[in-house]
Design a protein around this nucleic acid. Structure first.
Length: 490
RNA sequence: GGUCGGUUGGCCGAGUGGCUAGGCAGCGGUCUGCAAAACCGCGUACGGCGGUUCGAAUCCGCCACCGACCUCCA
């Protein structure tokens, strides 16, 4: 528990030691997906980053309440008009209920997160399920004088807030600069200042998701849900707030302003932001249209992909970069990750083949220390992985008889490798590897390998190679070693 | 235009003042009937220019290039 975990706090722009507000408990809030499109690689990054954090904090013994929201309000518009076009009419008849769209993409998101072995959060609240709470906060902020009503909408008064508090403390924005960056936007005329943001927005006719309120039929502002739901489930003040770097401004800045007025407190102590995934050096995002969905990765069905990549390859690829760095997608990089992952997993499986000796030439305690040090240093998963590769090399050397390990140390090593690879990094064995542990299959293949061994002993290499080649065709890779052949499924 | 961040060997990607990150690819070797795997060895990288220092990829300054945010976006 006295782990000395340091995390980089965007608020201070420094790594800070993590000390929970309530000992032994951690409140973690992460901005989840807006469910109006298929999940893509960009969605995988924060999910995996904060999954790693969730897993590690849990391992350290904290009771973690992890809240990750589903944004299902405010993005759906009805583009149908009153034209007589038959196709348009049919489209309208077959049109999906907004909640159908939400349900569909929520399910898709869950499906792909499961495949990536991302643990479910403790609570996954939906914005649409918290309209009443959001309206209550609108009232609170209005009553405190930091919001104004304008033509059925309610806006947060940023200028007033900035007089009394500090708008921009998270993002480093200066309000005067924001004024200079003015652009013409819809609804501008309703706002006192361009940087004011909506708490409640009156729905225009084409908006199909709408709720009644004393201001108008409308929907809550874009930033309000996170302030409301984090406070509801984690309290006015909680430990860690996470999300993508692109949400830093304005989303999180606005959240801070709202929560500060509504609850009188900074909502979160530590703010963590994962960086973007780039493609050809550019951010992969919905608006740029350069995203590759997770389904496309898993099936290889995208012209940018030279092959399909397994969920674990994607997970490992993301974990091989530090979460605050951009990570550039390329087929070459992904294939390198895939091969590396196979090498690592092979070594993990090889642990069972290691025979203990009387002494150890591998320092298990040092290995353990280095692994924890990497995680404690702002979740440095790439460094942790580099240590795991060193352990992999050591394991293979033990099998080759070049290194030794005592039975005690071997047990420790098995426990540690299992802990870091499976529990904390959240990697898992492929279906093929799981099949390889099937006893019946094991005996059948062993029988074939035994026959091949006999053929080899008789210098009948034609038969030996035939067995090997035929097995390879089915998907078995045969590896000859000092003490006979071993196999694995590709 | 403003704010912030980045530029590391063939590719990806750690590293923040001196000590081999790691993975992939490549080359040489060991092992093997051959192959694969594994192991051993090799490459001697830090955008440019200047400064600080005994010593800088790492600190400071200037320049170049790239990106993020400023608008929905993970």
């Amino acid at each position: 528990m006295d782990s000395k975990l340091y995390i980089y706090n965007t608020l201070s722009r420094e790594k800070e030691i993590f000390i929970p507000i309530h000992p032994k408990h951690v409140g973690l809030y992460v901005c989840g997906p807006t469910v109006y499109g298929d999940p893509h690689l960009g969605h995988a990054r924060p999910a995996i980053t904060f999954d790693l954090l969730f897993r590690y904090l849990t391992h350290l013994g904290y009771r973690v309440r992890y809240v990750r929201n589903i944004t299902d309000v405010g993005h759906l518009e009805n583009d149908a008009d009153e034209g007589e076009d038959k196709i348009a009419k049919k489209a309208r008849l077959e049109e999906l209920e907004p909640m159908e769209v939400v349900q569909y993409y929520t399910d898709r998101y869950h499906q792909f997160m499961d495949e990536l072995n991302v643990k479910k959060p403790s609570i996954e609240p939906r914005a649409s399920g918290h309209i009443i709470e959001q309206l209550q906060v609108v009232d609170t902020i209005l009553n405190k004088g930091y919001a104004y009503e304008s033509n059925g909408s309610v806006y947060f008064d940023v200028a007033k807030y900035n007089n009394d508090y500090h708008y921009g403390k998270l993002s480093g924005r200066v309000i005067e600069d924001l004024l200079n960056a003015t652009r013409s936007l819809d609804g501008q005329t309703e706002k006192h200042n361009s940087f004011d943001f909506a708490l409640w927005k009156k729905a225009s006719p084409e908006h199909i998701m709408r709720w009644p309120s004393r201001f108008s039929d409308g929907f809550p502002g874009w930033h309000l849900e996170c302030s409301v739901m984090s406070a509801k489930y984690l309290g006015d003040e909680f430990d860690i707030h996470g999300g993508g770097m692109d949400l830093l401004f304005p989303h999180h800045e606005c959240e801070i302003a709202q929560s500060t007025i509504a609850n009188g407190k900074m909502p979160a102590k530590y703010w963590m932001h994962n960086n973007m995934i780039t493609i050809n050096g550019q951010k992969m995002g919905k608006s740029l249209g350069n995203f590759i969905t997770l389904e496309e990765f898993f099936t290889g069905s995208n012209s940018l992909l030279s092959m399909a990549y397994s969920p674990m390859t994607i997970r490992f690829f993301i974990l091989q970069a530090h979460y605050r760095s951009t990570v550039d997608f390329s087929n070459e990089a992904l294939q390198a990750s895939e091969k590396g992952l196979v090498r690592l997993m092979d070594a993990v499986n090889n642990l069972n083949k290691v025979k203990p000796s009387n002494s150890s030439s591998f320092d298990v305690n040092m290995f353990k220390e280095k692994c924890y040090a990497a995680l404690n240093d702002d979740l440095n998963s790439p460094v942790l992985i580099s240590h795991l590769f060193e352990a992999a090399k050591a394991i293979n050397s033990m099998i080759a008889g070049l290194m030794m390990i005592t039975a005690d140390d071997l047990e420790k090593l098995k426990t540690l490798v299992g802990l870091f690879v499976f529990d904390i990094l959240g990697l898992k064995q492929t279906v093929a590897e799981t099949n390889a542990n099937n006893e019946v299959l094991n005996e059948v293949v062993s029988l074939l390998l035994k026959l091949r061994g006999e053929a080899k002993a008789n210098k009948d290499f034609v038969t030996a190679d035939k067995i090997r080649d035929e097995l390879l065709k089915i998907g078995f890779v045969i590896k000859d070693g000092k003490d006979g052949a071993t196999w694995e499924l590709k």
